[in-house]
Amino acid sequence: MAKIKNRIRRLRFDNNEMTQEELAKRAGCTRQTIIALEQGKYVPSIELAFKIARVFGVSLEEVFQYEE
């Protein structure tokens, strides 16, 4: 079964322990969505995925990984 995993929590930690609220604000979503993403309970749209990657200044693949 295919699954999309992410490193959002790790990247937040690496970026001066950025808060979920701050990431949400900069990515243009709610904190609840960041929580759901970190828990692997929500797969974002391409647009939101790019926005999150842009906040951390990394490529999409460094944030999200597609696993089969």
Partner: peptide, 9 residues
Amino acid sequence: KPRQIDERD
């Protein structure tokens, strides 16, 4: 309110 609702909502 843009920050109240996002794509998941």
